[in-house]
Amino acid sequence: MTLTLTVSDEVRTLVPGFTHLAIEAHGLVNGPSNAASSALLDDAAHRLAERLGGRAPHEDPHMAAWRAAYTAFGAKPSRTRNSAEALAKRALADGGLPRINALVDAYNAISVAHLVPVGGEDLDRIEGGMRLVRATGDEPFTTVAAGVATVEHPDAGEIVWCDDAGVTCRRWNWRQGPRTRLTEESVNAIFLLESLAPMTTGELQVAGVELAESLEKLSPGARITVRTPE
Rank of each mutant, 00 (worst) to 15 (best):
D155V: 03
I190K: 00
R67L: 01
L218C: 05
V206L: 02
W174F: 15
A189S: 09
P16Q: 03
T168Q: 06
E10P: 02
L92F: 04
G177Q: 01
G74H: 03
A35F: 14
M63H: 15
A145T: 14
P198A: 05
V7R: 03
T180V: 07
N173A: 15
S38Y: 10
L21G: 00
P77K: 06
C162D: 06
S111I: 00
R90T: 15
S37E: 10
A212D: 13
D9H: 04
A39Q: 10
E230F: 14
T228P: 07
I100K: 08
T200P: 02
A156T: 14
R99W: 10
I110S: 04
L204C: 01
T136D: 09
G96Y: 10
G54Q: 03
R67G: 10
T71V: 07
R99T: 15
L115G: 03
T200D: 00
E184Q: 05
T71P: 13
A222R: 07
R55F: 05
R81Y: 10
E194G: 03
L103H: 08
L97Y: 02
T228E: 12
R12F: 13
L211H: 10
S186V: 07
I100T: 11
A102N: 06
G208W: 05
V167Q: 05
G208P: 04
E213W: 03
T71Q: 14
R99S: 14
N108S: 08
P154V: 02
V226M: 03
T201M: 11
E127G: 13
I110R: 04
A44G: 06
S214N: 13
S219N: 00
V118E: 14
R90A: 15
L14Q: 12
M63C: 11
D164T: 06
K76W: 07
M130H: 11
G54M: 06
P220K: 09
D9G: 02
E24C: 04
A25C: 05
I100W: 12
A36F: 09
P140I: 05
